[in-house]
Design a protein around this nucleic acid. Structure first.
Lengths: 207, 207
DNA sequence: CCATGTGAACGCTTTCACAGCT
DNA sequence: AGCTGTGAAAGCGTTCACATGG
């Protein structure tokens, strides 16, 4: 092993999840077999992932040291700085996210919320300032916001997304039902509940 | 082509998304190039996916008929019956989902909510009945609930998940941060916002 | 000419098998 | 023996190239 320029996407996704598992792991050491049991991933896959990390984890015959593993993962896959976020669209779902405790310990901090509906902006109680959507450009710059959570009505998703992209945001978590398009420089994760429901439906299961 | 027993998972995921796109498509016909533009998937991939569907879509040189395509997809990938769901965990996030309009037109219907906190069960306003978590077994049976949306606190996720599995539920959409384990017969989709945020973070982007 | 249908080629992911260390 | 580290092999998913039909 030596100079992996960049981790494969599949591995990255697993390592992000694994970090959550490690944070809650009660013991000092963990083996690939234990991780396998907890996640469902094959133990060989986990070892292979670790190998791709490049770093020597010196886990031989003892399992891995949770401490070491955590810090290697953080270094390799996360940006450990606190990352500023905003919530765009304060309908029922968006408003429910106006609660820093959801994000505690995650490395993400919600700084502000936006909504095009001025009434909502004024009426909603929140521990962060709320602004009209038109203020996005300057607020996002001033507050150094890097990521956005998009929870506007489906029909506005692409339009608002385009405006977000213009502000120079780095990534968007899309909670709407529609697929949004961004330039390659802005990464998107779509997490629509409806979509997820459709994916757990198993065609086989007819009565 | 002939007897594909079952669609590859990757194709299935795309087809579920595509169905959303088709529902909002303004014209009678659609080409693979148009789908590509709207979704970002390669046009050849889309044609290949359709080929895997087995059915003859006779789109040659004209693009596909949205109508036909939709019904083939529905037949192949969805269960078109209305599917009953419940929300388990009525904290800020779960409570925000107590709103059928979020699910309108999706084929899913929220029937009931559950929470272990009796106070919440009594105090929350909702268009569906709310029950204490202990009532899950009989309510889920009686209401013929097939799928659950899990939005309990992270620390209770696995415990409540196990209880859900026991009721005979078919699939779970997991909104908590932790990975939950189920027997292979119960499908899970994890859609954690924190996880999604971590995935849009691009390590490259250091100042 | 246009857009699809098709299968081969390519590349990424996972699994396997086993050497090596404790 | 137990568990990791490593590379080869197998398995999937995506892209390509092009024949085919309107």
């Amino acid at each position: 092993m030596s100079t992996t320029v960049c981790l494969p996407e599949a591995t990255r996704k697993r390592m992000v999840q694994l970090l959550q598992l490690l944070k809650a792991w009660p013991e000092k050491k963990i083996t690939s077999a234990q991780i396998s049991k907890a996640t469902g991933w094959k133990d060989s896959l986990i070892r292979h992932d670790f190998w791709l990390l490049g770093k020597n984890l010196d886990g031989v015959s003892n399992g891995y040291c949770v401490q070491t593993l955590t810090s290697v993962l953080e270094e390799k896959i996360c940006d450990t700085r606190t990352k500023n976020c905003c919530i765009v669209g304060l309908g029922r779902l968006g408003a429910a996210l106006l609660d820093q405790s959801i994000f505690d310990g995650s490395g993400f901090e919600i700084k502000v919320g936006f909504d095009s509906n001025l009434y909502r902006v004024e009426i909603l109680r929140s521990s962060f300032p709320l602004y009209p959507a038109d203020d996005m450009p300057w607020v996002i710059k001033q507050e150094k916001i890097e990521y956005a959570i998009l929870s506007v009505p489906d029909k506005d998703a692409q339009k608002i997304c385009d405006r977000l992209v213009k502000t120079g945001i780095k990534g968007i978590v899309n909670l709407t039902r529609v697929l949004i398009k961004t330039p390659p420089s802005v990464k998107v994760e779509n997490i629509s509940i409806i979509n997820a429901l459709n994916l757990v439906v198993r065609k086989e299961s007819f009565d």
